[in-house]
Write a protein that binds this DNA or RNA. Sequence first.
DNA 1: AGCACGCCGACT
DNA 2: GTCGGCGTGCTC
Length: 750
Amino acid sequence: MTYGKFAEVVLDIPLNKKFHYNIPPSFVNQVEIGKRVKVPFGRRTVVGYCVGLTNISDVKTLKDIIHVIDTTPILSSKMLAVAEWMANFYFCGLGEALESFLPSVVKKGIKSRTINVIRLCKDGISVKEMIFTIKKRAPIQVRVLEALAEVGEITFPELADISKCKMDSVNRLRDRGFITLDKVEVSDPLFAGKHFKKTSHFSSTEEQEVAIRLIKRKVRERKHSVVLLKGVTGSGKTEVYLQAISEVITLGMKAIVLVPEISLTPQTIERFKSRFDRVAVLHSSLTERQRSDQWWDIKSGNADVVVGARSAIFAPLEDVGLIVIDEEHENTFKQDTSPRYNARDVSVVRAAYENAVVVLGSATPSLESFYNTEIGKYECVTLKNRVGHKPLPRVEVIDMRREIFGGKGQKPISDYLELSMKKCLSKKEQVLLLLNRRGFSPFISCRRCGFVLKCKRCDISLTYHKKKDAVICHYCFAEEPVPRECPDCCSPGIRFTGFGTERMEELIRARFPQYNLLRMDSDTMRGRDSHEKALSAFRRGDIDILLGTQMIAKGLDFPNVTLVGVLSADTIVNLPDFRASEKTFQLLCQVAGRTGRSAKGGKVIVQTYNPEHYSITYAATHDYDGFAKKELEYRKQLYYPPYGRLARVVLRGKKDLDVKEKASDIAEKLMNAIKLSDGSLLAGLRKDKVGVLGPAPAPIVRVKDNYRWHLIVKADSFKNLHTILKSIENENRNSKKVQMMIDVDPYMLL
DNA sequence: AGCACGCCGACT
DNA sequence: GTCGGCGTGCTC
Ligand SMILES: [Zn+2]
Ligand SMILES: [Zn+2]
């Protein structure tokens, strides 16, 4: 045992361990919980987070802290507690969790940038005289002076561009006393020159009033609680959020609003900016400096409301009274790299530490949240009606099994949809078409021998992209030239099967030549604001038909859209995953909500080979509760979430055999944690409530030359799930041969 | 994660 | 005889 003044420091290494460091007397007053410190580690120095102070340590010799980085704690004790929860819940290192709390720009220390502004010295000699003194000896300095004589004052980067000078010439001129150099802080303001017209509360419907009153009451209680706000698209959920936030601000507290990345548009931001004065935005499209400025603004207490995507849940606000998660069911709130957290679930934990209220908003809540209202854990308020009592659009399901192309092949567009499109377009109304598959055709095969073209590195068929004139793997993004003959039998007949958005675009353009079509998928929407531009062109009416992948299902409402076509509702429903039905239902409801927003009404046509599937029939009648009840029944039978709790363990490596072996080894360890020595199972659970499924080859066995095996761990509660996972916690996750990944509460099992 | 140590194969 | 492969283990 050693005694003294020590700091518990967490480092960003995949080890859930705290390291003790001695605090030298000169740092005693500086070291504080929540500050970053520089420490020696092995033979390098690294940055760590001070998470605790202690007088006693069982480590014999402690090294000294080298430096204290922050003047005030960069993480509050509440946030440290959230990080601790994350590390335990998602089985990641505490350092790894903390690392995701601070944006990289903050870690890099990007703060305000200064720039040199150069001015001619007004007093004293004239420019002519200056040039005369320098004479021809320094032509660059002469050029600088001439340029300055013209403009008077200029920033160094601009001057360097005009007169092709370097800093040393400028310094020499300054030394002669001809010019002055001033460091000026450059700001890169987010909303430079933009004025937000202030709006006050919109009149709200009776339903909205009920919701607002409930949330306001909860906020005033300053007690942790969760409210599920269930409201169809167009029912005015945002207005409810706004009025609730207004109450929070009145009470001197602050609010966080999480929105799916794709919905974080200028219009969304404007809704908040126009209602509240001190709004900060955290978004990936900000420049580094803007992001840093926003973060420090929040940190220094200059924001009442933070609007942002997933990671904004870690916004450094104090006194959080309300956290809103809009489109709560969206999988974008689950991070797909470690730490694999779900911001929705983190928000509930953070709110618990902050004594804050969480509002989960959705037209189609996740089954987890719905279940939590059923068992009374969350409260539920419903907005049944759209604002203005606009009816939800009629949904017609087309059985594509009846639409056969004269005996050969399948018809991508039913006669009925085509006819409806014609009618709609002739009335100068707009059509939205959803096809959840990009590229030209998703399947390339040989007409002679049936050989299917697959990625060389992945176990997945390649997609033909016509414009790029290449075949692309949608898993590893590898591109290959289009084969001119079969790689297997060398016969020249190559067949392209199936329709992606690119091919559908071609087909529709051919059938509707007089109308403007825009294709919107990740191939055509490469640029940062292209998505925004496309939507505004559609809004203006420059485009008649908008064809796209999921990304068209979100965004704002377009009153002139009177027809929505879902070209294939089957892409998700056929996935071998327990969330396939839920995802299908949500997508259909979401896209259906894009129409019927005006007096013109609206219609939705869903093409499917599974017209009787309950996710489709319930979506057709806009019956969320009906769907949820049925889906919960299935989940209960199969003991899937929200009843059973899952974790997925994925092993990958270059050699299939190594991976398989490691997977069996892991499975055995997990089983040992479940099967107790007396033969009973963990916590006395029955066989169907706890166990390990697999190891099995992952549904896509090979990705980027890596073979993948996976295991699913199932338990009745997260607590027991964690007990089981503890048995493999200290396994090497990054060995050379086989890498291991643990995903607690995975979104999908694929 | 890094970065050592250490133990075997194939080279000047 | 050395150079260099990567398996193993530790870091306050
Ligand atoms: Zn062939
Ligand atoms: Zn691939």
